[in-house]
Design a binder for these strands. Structure first.
Lengths: 83, 83
DNA sequence: TTTAACTATGATCTTTAAATCATAAAGAGT
DNA sequence: ACTCTTTATGATTTAAAGATCATAGTTAAA
């Protein structure tokens, strides 16, 4: 189940989905990733623009990883910025 | 050219590669993403654990996106944390 | 529907990323 | 070698994330 992400909110959604699949509460995920329930909540809701360090802590706890790739077709954004 | 990333340093590498492919200097990338050359340098070198907001600014300027996915085989990390 | 678990939100404090300026160190080209 | 461009680093200031505590909503389950 791969999830595209172009904004912090996208990442938040992906994390929430993955957490639910694993049937973890925010508190459980928090303790597994060395964070706080409040922080997980904010990340999932895109309230705060998390630090990468924090993000990777959460991803690791969910056994997820990230892939950096060229933007796929649809929703072209800053095509003009290339060349 | 897809790049796996599990740490801020991984992302830094991916960004540097993409920037070079596009033959941009750090200063050019910085101005396109509304940041500073110094910041790009630190991100590429994994010196600072960038905020997601900043990261996405850079990715957008390079027309890159991120995909969240289950950790691929090899380098198993916290397999035990699942279930 | 009452209770218990889960999630969201608000305040304060600490820590740290990013802006900004200055400059050093590297690299490329002539 | 010297010059120009690019990249790295260091200091200071500002803004914002995360920790922490308290608590208000919300949801699920008995």
């Amino acid at each position: 189940m791969k999830q595209l992400a172009r904004t912090p909110k996208d990442i938040g959604h992906a994390i929430r989905e993955a957490r639910k699949e694993r049937r973890l509460s925010q508190t459980e995920l928090a303790s597994r990733s060395g964070l706080w329930q409040e922080t997980i909540s904010k990340i999932e809701n895109g309230v705060a623009s998390t630090k990468m360090e924090t993000l990777f802590d959460v991803l690791a706890a969910l056994d997820l990883e990230i892939q950096v790739q060229p933007r796929s077709k649809g929703v072209p954004s800053s095509m003009d910025a290339l060349f």
